[in-house]
């Protein structure tokens, strides 16, 4: 499960997604410049990111959610209007 961590004075470490791994597994097309859209019917690329959840800071990986339905929502920024 997601692992809690204590914040220090540095920014939380950015956990780079394993793009090369996703490419080698055929989940993502060969890396090109700019954005490449994922495809429906294909595996969702895994990632790990720091997160805020109910008073705690934790690391969350998409792979923890295998076996469950997941809805991911990206949005432009906190304190935006819609």
């Amino acid at each position: 499960m997601a692992e809690e961590f204590r914040p220090g004075c540095q920014r939380p470490e950015i956990k780079k997604p394993k793009v090369d791994e996703a490419v080698s597994q055929g989940v993502l097309p060969l890396k090109e410049e700019g954005n490449v859209m994922v495809k429906v019917g294909k595996a969702a690329p895994d990632f790990t990111a720091s997160a805020y959840y109910q008073g705690k800071f934790m690391n969350v990986s998409l792979s923890e959610y295998i076996g469950k339905w997941v809805l991911i929502c990206f949005y432009p920024g906190d304190f935006t209007f819609v």
Binding site: K39, K68, L71
Partner: peptide, 13 residues
Amino acid sequence: TRGRFIIDPDGII
């Protein structure tokens, strides 16, 4: 941007 993805229990988009 406002991207929204539905992923099934097998990890498929």
